[in-house]
Amino acid sequence: MSAAEAPRRLRARVRPPAGRTLGASAAVLAALVVGHVVTSAFPVDERVAAPFVREGAVGDTLDLRYARLTVEEPTGSTVLAPEVGSLLATPGVWLVVPVTVEAKGQPRALAFAELLGGDGRTYTVFTGGRSAFLPGAAQPGVPRYATLHVEVPPEAVAGARLRVGLDVEDQRHDDVAEVDLGLTQADADAWSAGDTPVRAPAASDAPPEHP
């Protein structure tokens, strides 16, 4: 490159006027601000990832994507008689809820449950441990009779709602049943004073025997 060519090449790259540069910068900044407002100012994240909550009451059959679910009348006491092992006592209340699962499409093992207590707290029901829900796999068209037991303080009983779903890790974008257990303060008082063991039989395809 000769010395005479260099200034000509530089001159060829015409700088845009300062006003235009400022205008373009302002437009880019405005676009970023609008993008930020759209993605963060509205609380859409939680709604986008939220489960489809199917609400019902005790005795209703809820039609979920993966199963039909019926929650029966709960019982309670301060002492629980699990299928195996010794009696479990609590300073609170044991809630025992019969749940009937009828799978749809393919066998399903429901694994998620939690109790939304009347005290505003959420009580996790693990697939193992003191509070448990272990329905096992249900074959489509063959009802599976399971019970769920959860240990809660007496103040959580009145107004408690039960949530049941498919995946223990992830309920996003999927159906979750939410059942109002119809419990009152009178139930809480009676159960927190009672020490007659309440049975929690293991899940089975045979209907539970009613005494």
Partner: peptide, 16 residues
């Protein structure tokens, strides 16, 4: 597993 005409699947379960 076996399936019906609707495609509903019924699994073989070894211990059930």
């Amino acid at each position: 597993a076996v399936r019906d005409a609707d495609g509903t699947r019924y699994d073989y379960v070894a211990d059930a």
